[in-house]
């Protein structure tokens, strides 16, 4: 029961600090999971990559951390903790916004937040790379994906994910 509460509270706190979307909070989420002993760094990477194979919002993999720690109740605790607080905030502010529309301050905040989000996301890239890019095969797939994603921007990213999986089976 205590575990469920800790899961719910930890992911709740994280969700309210998650400015700049899901990828900006990856380093903090990984840190939190390792600190609580919920997942090792490599397990976290594995779960994150499973998440890449599922449709929908990009952070549904948080449920798997709860599930790993405490089964379905754990997944439910994370679901409530991680998704409900920001949703309530969005609901409340969305309604307030339609009454009091203060775009200059909002614009200022958004412009100030944007470079921070990019910095946080790059830290996430650094973290994922240090656990995922080991060996020549992985580096080759990374380089090919980077080339493919910048060269063929019209191509659907999921196609690259599938191709990476197939190449992984063949090479790694």
């Amino acid at each position: 029961m205590l575990t469920l509460l800790v899961l719910c509270m930890s992911f709740g706190t994280l969700s309210l600090l998650a400015f700049g979307g899901g990828s900006a909070m990856l380093p903090e989420m990984a840190r939190m999971c390792v600190a609580h002993g919920w997942a090792s760094g490599d397990e976290f990477t594995l779960l994150y990559n499973l998440g890449q194979l599922a449709p929908g919002p990009n952070c549904m993999m948080v449920l798997t951390i709860g599930h790993k720690v405490a089964g379905l109740p754990g997944a439910a605790a994370v679901l409530v903790g991680f998704f409900v607080p920001p949703a309530l905030l969005a609901y409340g502010l969305g309604r307030a916004y339609r009454k009091f529309n203060d775009s200059p301050n909002q614009e200022w905040f958004r412009r100030s937040m944007a470079p921070i989000s990019v910095g946080l996301t790059l830290a996430g890239v650094h973290l994922m790379a240090s656990s995922a890019l080991h060996g020549a095969g992985a580096l080759l797939i990374f380089a090919l994906a980077l080339y493919g994603l910048t060269r063929y921007q019209r191509c659907h990213p999921f196609f690259m994910v599938l191709l990476g999986g197939l190449l992984g089976v063949a090479l790694l």
């Binding site: 594995l46 797939i141 994906a145 992984g168």
Partner: peptide, 19 residues
Amino acid sequence: FAGLKGVAAVSVALLFTAA
């Protein structure tokens, strides 16, 4: 697991290009 390692390498590239 080999397939997932391939997916992982692509994930890093995806995250990087998004940033």
